[in-house]
C-alpha cells in the first residue's frame, strides 16, 4: 500500500477538487451542510420538542455527535459506490482495488476534521472549556475510522455484485441515525429498549466522542472496549472479504 501513497493522495484530491467545481460556494459546502443540519435540528429539538441535556446546551450536545455521525454515513454512502463509479479504471488497469473505498473515506476525513474546528468555535461561543481529555481524541478517531473502513470494504464489495446496496444506503443510514443516541441522550430511552442502543457500535463511538469533547473524561471503559473490539473485527473481516471478492470485480462490474 505504501507504494500507492501518491496515487491515494491524487485520488483524494480528485474527489475533493471535483466535488465542488462549477459551484459558487465551492468547498464551503462542506461546512454549510452540517451547519444547516445543526440549526434545523437544534430548533426542532430545543424549542419545539424539548430534549433535556443537562448542563450542556442542546446545539453543542447535538453537534458533538452529529459531525462524527455525518462522517460515518457520508463515508459509507460514498465508499459503497466507489468501485462501481471507478469501473473504467478497474477494468483497464491493475491497481489495488482497496484504494477506491479508502480514498472515499479519506476524502471525508478531511471534511470531518474541518467540522471539528467549527465545533471548537461553537464551544468557545458557548463557553464550554476544552479539557485535557482531548488528548484521547486520536484514539477514538482511530477506532471510528477502522469501523468505517471495515463497513466500507464490505458494502463496496457487495455493491459490485448487487447494486441494490447503494440504493438502500440512504434509508439504512437514516434509520441507523435514529437508533443511535445522536439527537437525544441515552437516559431518556426506556430501559427495556436500551439493549438495542447498546449493541449498536456507533452508540459506543458517539458516547466516547461526547466524553472526550464535553465531559472531560476518558471514554466509559465498557464502551471503549466494546467499540475497540468491534471496530478491529469489522476492519479485519471487511478487508479479508474484500480481498477474496476482488478477483471477480473486473468480470462483474
Amino acid at each position: 500500500m505504501f507504494k500507492y501513497k501518491d496515487l491515494l493522495v491524487e485520488l483524494v484530491k480528485r474527489e475533493v477538487k471535483s466535488r465542488y467545481k462549477q459551484s459558487v460556494l465551492g468547498y464551503a459546502w462542506v461546512l454549510l451542510v452540517p451547519l444547516i443540519n445543526l440549526v434545523v435540528l437544534s430548533l426542532v429539538f430545543s424549542y419545539f420538542v424539548r430534549i433535556p441535556t443537562g448542563d450542556i446546551p442542546y446545539p453543542i450536545f447535538l453537534f458533538t455527535a452529529l459531525i462524527p455521525w455525518m462522517f460515518t454515513s457520508n463515508s459509507i454512502i460514498f465508499a459503497t459506490s466507489s468501485l462501481v463509479s471507478n469501473s473504467n479504471l478497474i477494468t483497464k488497469i491493475y491497481l489495488p482495488r482497496e484504494i477506491f473505498p479508502v480514498a472515499s473515506v479519506v476524502s471525508k476525513i478531511i471534511d470531518f476534521l474541518l467540522s471539528i474546528l467549527i465545533l471548537f468555535i461553537f464551544m468557545f461561543v458557548y463557553k464550554i472549556p476544552l479539557g485535557v481529555s482531548l488528548l484521547y481524541l486520536p484514539i477514538v478517531l482511530v477506532i471510528h475510522l477502522l469501523f468505517v473502513l471495515g463497513i466500507s470494504f464490505i458494502f463496496s464489495a457487495i455493491n459490485v455484485f448487487y447494486r441494490d446496496i447503494e440504493n438502500t444506503m440512504g434509508v439504512v443510514t437514516t434509520l441507523w441515525m435514529y437508533l443511535t443516541p445522536i439527537l437525544y441522550p441515552q437516559d431518556i430511552v426506556p430501559d427495556k429498549y436500551l439493549i438495542f442502543l447498546k449493541i449498536n457500535p456507533m452508540t459506543s463511538i458517539i458516547e466516547s466522542y461526547r466524553d472526550v469533547f464535553l465531559y472531560n473524561r476518558f471514554p466509559r471503559i465498557d464502551y471503549f472496549i466494546y467499540s475497540l473490539v468491534f471496530s478491529v473485527s469489522v476492519f479485519v473481516l471487511g478487508f479479508v472479504f474484500f480481498r477474496s471478492r476482488s478477483k471477480y470485480f473486473a468480470d462483474v462490474i
Partner: peptide, 19 residues
Amino acid sequence: AGFHPELTGRENVYLNGTI
C-alpha cells in the same frame, strides 16, 4: 481512463501519472 472531466489538464497529468 483515469481522466476526470472537471479537473484541469495539469491535475489530470498528476492523476493519470500516479495511476
